[in-house]
Design a binder for these strands. Sequence first.
DNA 1: GACCGTACCAAGCGCTTGCTTGATTACGCT
DNA 2: AGCGTAATCAAGCAAGCGCTTGGTACGGTC
Lengths: 195, 195
Amino acid sequence: MARESGDRRERILASAAALFANKGVAATTVREIADEVGILSGSLYHHFESKEAMVDEIVTSYLDDLRTRYKRVMAADTDPRTRLHDLIVASLEVVEAHPHATEIYQNDVNYLTQIERFGYLRNAGKEVQATWLQVLEAGIAQGVIRDDLDPKILYRLMRDAVWLSVRWFKPTAAYPITRLAEECTSLFLDGLSRR
Amino acid sequence: MARESGDRRERILASAAALFANKGVAATTVREIADEVGILSGSLYHHFESKEAMVDEIVTSYLDDLRTRYKRVMAADTDPRTRLHDLIVASLEVVEAHPHATEIYQNDVNYLTQIERFGYLRNAGKEVQATWLQVLEAGIAQGVIRDDLDPKILYRLMRDAVWLSVRWFKPTAAYPITRLAEECTSLFLDGLSRR
DNA sequence: GACCGTACCAAGCGCTTGCTTGATTACGCT
DNA sequence: AGCGTAATCAAGCAAGCGCTTGGTACGGTC
């Protein structure tokens, strides 16, 4: 059985990601991961160098995907309003594609960044912020976005609202992720007051 | 030295809260807590029954404070728009008063709720949601809040944005917490589009 | 049919964990 | 001076941790 090596590897990674997301990285043991896959804990080390290596692979592929999509948004020749909308859509798509990785990143950044190996997480966060700020500031300069709100604060409020949707949003036929993206965009751009 | 017993207890609690918030509950050891206070780990058990008991006391006093302030907001005879503003202010005040507890709650709910002792966290979350929904739905019924946005989704977006400010917001003289509250309220109610 | 790499198991190592225990100290009260 | 209590230390236990090791089963290759 299991003639396909990569298959097993990915199943381990998937189980690990789910456990890391639900219980936290520190609180998840290699034995739990092995149990979920149906092997002994020692056998994990045939596929991965360490527990950290599993976390690393999960988080890295998540960040790679995020960077790729952000670049695509910024490469398009669009106005700030559209770009903001597209950033929200791209973010939610990444959240949907890597729900466990998103949750790990959200819950355990503090813990992870103090491990030498994951120092790169700091830079990743700064990159994301720079992208959003670029869009917001262009919007303010062009007069389509209010200039009485601090763009850094705006970014952080929107980022947390969008990213943490991973904790509660489960797409359905009646309420797909595209609709969440529209409601997010509409809330942030137009506000919830009736006019 | 340390003739006041309660003093030492609170210093332990403060150190524990800071460590729990920064590293996560599971990743913080009782020896680290003791080191911060300047005693041996065994001595902690003269003041607390267990590590869980410390977490419990931190989180409980946080939730008590939150509930109290929310009740005060809802007891006032105000319109939905004001109430929403007051809920945001109250939330930010609690975040400011219990920054470590807020962070612990945000980062470790998943981990904590699966420990029997902390099952009450589920109900606490539902209570908070019910309060916000009550205000939002009253606003929709009175026609001051748009009816094309799902109130549950609105609540979750605003909640995450407001609560996670604990991770990045440090009040200064130029930008006190009251201003953050105003910007939050203005963003959510009016949106960031210039009109 | 000898050989090799892959995938796994069984066992356990060294270490850290939360927590316990018994002895010792500091201090207020009489 | 003597006593009682609170606070602490020194030492260590059982359990669980991440990870290593030595060995086995098996499919493919020449």
